[in-house]
């Protein structure tokens, strides 16, 4: 479904990413993880055409992404850390931006919103509230509903739980995994939290300085580290809790 071939991205003089190649497995959850500035968000943005590669190619469904941007974007949902909700639109209006643009009937819109609210456990009576009136966790649920509005094949999430307080984070984390399981879509999630990566990821891609250090399931990373950095990165996060 998604593939990067020999991509390079530069920001000014510095080489931010690559050259790297990566195939995202279809219908599974892939987690991109690494320290700040390792290029994981850039890689995610490359998958939806927000950061086109300077060299190499991003492929969507086997064809270059750049040649089919509008269609590919409609088949992809994208959620960022603070939700990226438009403050001048209510929760419902945020969710229905694309359905309205595509001319769905009011009834079809309402049905879709109700289904999504049930899926994401969002209180239906808050659907007509403004983003500023919602809690952080609620805003993030609305962002996920907006990303899923057109029932896309792919869901990209950039630190969707970052910036939430621990309790809210925990609740949303559980719900999110259930959503992922229920949908069985191709999901790419960016995080810097190893626990989160292990919790969500069928495949974990560990990155450092714009390069992929290792990819595999959590057991692979633990038992067969490709580089001392892999072990170091995992251990550093494990020892966060002294208990």
């Amino acid at each position: 479904m998604l593939e990067l071939r020999g991509v390079v991205k530069r920001f000014g003089e510095a080489q931010a990413l690559g050259p790297l190649s990566l195939a995202i497995p279809e219908g599974r959850t892939t987690v991109l993880i690494g320290p700040s500035g390792c290029g994981k968000s850039t890689l995610l943005r490359m998958l939806i055409g927000l950061a086109p590669p300077d060299e190499g190619e991003a492929l969507f469904g086997g064809a270059p992404l750049s040649g089919q941007l509008p269609e590919a974007r409609r088949r992809t949902g994208y959620v960022i850390q603070d939700g990226g909700l438009f403050p001048h639109l209510t929760a419902r209006e945020n969710i229905c931006l694309m359905p309205v643009h595509l001319g769905w009937t009011e009834r079809a819109q309402a049905e879709r919103v109700d289904a999504l609210a049930a899926l994401t456990r969002f209180p239906a009576e808050r659907l007509d509230a403004w983003p500023a009136e919602l809690s952080g966790g609620q805003r993030q649920r609305v962002a996920i509903m907006r990303a899923l509005a057109l029932d896309p094949d792919v869901l990209l999430l950039d630190e969707p739980l970052g910036g939430l307080d621990p309790l809210v984070r925990r609740g949303l984390q559980d719900d999110l995994r259930e959503i992922f399981r229920a949908l069985s879509k191709t999901i790419v999630l960016v995080t810097h939290d190893m626990h989160e990566a292990a919790f969500f990821g069928d495949l974990i891609v560990l990155m450092r300085d714009g390069a992929v250090m290792q990819q595999g399931c959590i057991a692979d990373l633990l038992e067969h580290p490709a580089d001392p950095f892999v072990t170091e990165f995992i251990r550093a996060q494990r020892s966060e809790l002294p208990l």
């Binding site: 943005r45 939806i48 927000l50 941007l69 509008p70 269609e71 590919a72 974007r73 409609r74 992809t76 994208y78 960022i80 990226g84 909700l85 438009f86 931006l97 694309m98 643009h101 907006r146």
Partner: peptide, 9 residues
């Protein structure tokens, strides 16, 4: 970017 990523013209 959120607006662009939605696929709106």
């Amino acid at each position: 970017e959120s607006a662009e990523a939605l696929g709106l013209p």
